[in-house]
Design a protein around this nucleic acid. Structure first.
Lengths: 200, 200
DNA sequence: TATGTATATTACCGATCGGTACAGAAAACG
DNA sequence: CGTTTTCTGTACCGATCGGTAATATACATA
């Protein structure tokens, strides 16, 4: 058994409560005071559990990936038709971005947009850019697979197309934060899918 | 003649020097101290000239629109071919977003992404959302004109298409801030133009 | 029960935030 | 000239920032 006084809160649950604050306000915008209150824990307890604001943010980012991205990626790879997979991926992304049970938009996009301030640690910026690149890579490999399956024109460039879809989704996050409603964003998805290079 | 001691600095020039700070760091991220140093003016002088941080930001936003958006819009409307106009609009936008002589990305997109923090005044948020809507409106009317000119399919929805292009450009700003280079973003523009509904 | 260890809480640290009171300085008036 | 008016920089305001020292508390071990 562990010695000493046992912790009175679950660090995982605290992280779940901290996440939406970072999601809404970004790294700088979220104060440690606010984070502690959201977690229902005193500030020193939060520091004891996670070290500092930077480490807490990185933990929240990982939590975000596991709880709000992973299942969408799984569905992207489970759907056999490449075009439908991409379409549904963007549609579920819109659903997430406009889900009122948590902040609008994407934590990664919000974080990236505010990451070149001097107050944002380099590790945070690197992690965010890494998440962005990871998303592009996941999409690219799915598009390459669709190309092998004859669902995407052989002349298409999966990397360029992945960068395109990734950019559209970043834009969707911005629009969601600006207050666009779900239907408007789903309409954007329809327009974005017009660019899909079909097999002739 | 005006009585009293004359101002020793040009408020317009000061605004030009303040602009890139807001551009890079957003409303919250930019400190008044930093803004004053960038303007080459003491903090009370800046307050005497503009009132407070909120008014200074709104002035900088207007300056941004005049100096970094207006000419692109003018070219959008000057180019007779609708499709080429839209394409060049996005290409010059990419050029602006990746111009190393000032911060990357778009001040409006950066501002919007960080605007639902409590520290951002409602007037600032409203002005940013207004700029976003204005951009969509400009694009929509250009698309409607292209449709009248027979350069865009009659079945196309100019409003939906404008929302789409606006979203792509917001995404381009995010990517530019994340460090994407100009060629990568121009490639995204090429992909985005594939969605153009041509006349059959 | 006594001891060692890890927690929780209060209260505080220096630094910085947006914003300003104050006093000196420079011009237009009489 | 003196007066009035407005701008200038210094120095400061209370509040908040991220982070922590100090101490009381609760458990496992011995």
């Amino acid at each position: 058994m562990v010695r000493g006084r046992p912790r009175e809160f679950d660090a995982e649950i605290a992280l779940d409560r901290v996440l939406p604050v970072f999601w809404r306000d970004g790294f700088e915008g979220a104060s440690v005071q606010e984070l502690a209150e959201a977690a229902g824990v005193s500030k020193p307890s939060l520091y004891a559990a996670y070290g500092n604001k930077e480490a807490l943010y990185l933990a929240a980012l990982k939590r975000y990936a596991d709880a709000h991205i992973a299942d969408r990626v799984a569905r992207l790879e489970a759907e056999p038709d490449g075009r439908e997979a991409m379409r549904q991926f963007m549609r579920t992304t819109v659903a997430t971005y406009t889900d009122r049970s948590h902040p609008s938009g994407c934590l990664v996009v919000t974080g990236t947009t505010t990451s070149d301030s001097a107050a944002v640690p380099e590790a945070v910026r690197n992690a965010l850019c890494g998440s962005m690149r990871a998303a592009a890579t996941v999409i690219e490999s799915r598009l390459a697979r669709a190309q092998r399956d004859g669902q995407l024109s052989a002349s298409a460039d999966p990397a360029a197309l992945a960068a395109y879809f990734n950019t559209v989704m970043a834009g969707l996050s911005v629009q969601a934060k600006a207050g666009a409603d779900r239907e408007a964003l789903l309409s954007v998805v329809d327009e974005a899918m017009r660019g899909w290079p079909t097999v002739l």
